[in-house]
């Protein structure tokens, strides 16, 4: 294909994007658009699946049967989100096996927040409230992303995530109304999860490597800083309602901007955790690798059984 024809296709493609048309799997798309989506959607899918680990860590210790059922259903939903997202990514011509292999090889990333440990029951509250809360802010914006299958998966995922966020916040409400120890547990969880949650939105706009092109292709609809600000504004109020203190001495309402100002984010920590040097990076990947390896004989058995039965039914016919 000549350079000229390709660029004509690209012009046409950009026109469709500008007209807010959704791009569908069989449509022509620039290779870089496809690659960007594979990277982003698989990272999103891996995050859902790796995110099952810190929460799963508390499934057997949930403090009431009601909480246990809610958490079971929630972790199950996260796995379900992983499934839709892997399937949506597969429409771009890549298999789930390849995506999982990229995760195991350390080529594909997942949300850094899941490299922090869930140490107390309040962490389950903080993860639902802040981590799912941050994810929703991002995902609501992604409902309007230009790739059709991704946009549609976000619609369903957002509905479930808003239930997750409410259950997390509900845990924090209950703890903050509880004993002195429970309140301290809630505050400690907020202290540890606040800054990593803000980092979930990625680097400041000026430093974001992929942002400009993604905005042009409308894969991203709002910038990292816009989304982060939205999250900060909503969370500060929610913390206030339940008497918890945001761990940022510089936090201040800015009447001119109509937003909260915050202190400096420690980007060196962000870089360190992404690089693999966070508290749980090793365990998270090792767990995923180990479980995948332990399940190999089951997957082999399914394949062998199906092959035998196909053979038998062919013979019978």
């Amino acid at each position: 294909m000549s350079e000229e024809v390709k660029s004509e296709q690209e012009v046409l493609f950009q026109k469709r994007i500008d007209a807010e048309e959704k791009i569908e799997p069989k449509d022509w798309m620039p290779e870089k658009y496809r690659q960007t989506l594979i990277r982003q959607m698989s990272q999103h899918a891996h995050s859902e699946v790796i995110g099952m680990q810190p929460e799963g860590n508390w499934l057997t210790r949930a403090p009431t049967l009601h909480r246990k059922c809610i958490l079971l259903a929630k972790v199950q939903d996260e796995g379900g989100h992983g499934l839709y997202l892997y399937s949506a990514a597969e429409t771009l011509g890549i298999s789930r096996d390849e995506l999982v292999k990229a995760l195991h090889d350390g080529v594909a990333k997942y949300a850094s927040i899941f490299n922090y440990p869930a140490l107390t029951w309040a962490d389950i509250g903080a993860i639902g409230w802040l981590v799912d809360g941050a994810a929703i802010v991002n995902q609501i914006s992604l409902q309007r992303t230009s790739y059709g299958p991704y946009a549609r998966s976000m619609v369903r995922i957002c509905k479930e995530e808003s239930f997750h966020q409410r259950q997390g916040y509900q845990i924090m409400v209950t703890l903050s109304q509880g004993s002195h120890e429970q309140k301290a547990m809630a505050q400690d969880a907020l202290d540890r999860f606040w800054w990593p949650s803000l980092m979930m939105f990625g680097p400041h706009d000026a430093e974001s490597a992929h942002s400009a092109q993604s905005m042009k292709w409308k894969i991203k609809r709002q910038s990292n800083d816009q989304l982060r600000q939205k999250f900060i504004d909503q969370s500060v109020k929610q913390a206030d309602v339940i008497g918890l203190k945001i761990p940022d001495p510089a936090l201040k309402w800015n009447a001119d901007r109509g937003h909260y100002d915050i202190g400096a984010i420690d980007w060196s920590e962000f870089a360190r955790v992404i690089k693999g040097d966070g508290p749980c990076n090793r365990q998270r990947l090792q767990h995923h690798n180990r479980v995948h390896a332990e399940g190999a004989w089951v997957r082999d058995a399914v394949a062998a059984y199906e092959a035998k039965h196909k053979q038998r039914s062919t013979r019978a016919a």
Binding site: L59, T60, A73, V75, Q76
Partner: peptide, 26 residues
């Protein structure tokens, strides 16, 4: 059964085992 969460041999089966766990805890 709930101890299978994030330990299943593949994602679909992980979800299915959690579902049965939910039935029993229910």
């Amino acid at each position: 059964l709930s101890q299978w969460s994030s330990n299943g041999p593949f994602l679909e089966e992980d979800l299915a085992l959690t579902n049965v766990a939910l039935d029993y805890v229910g």
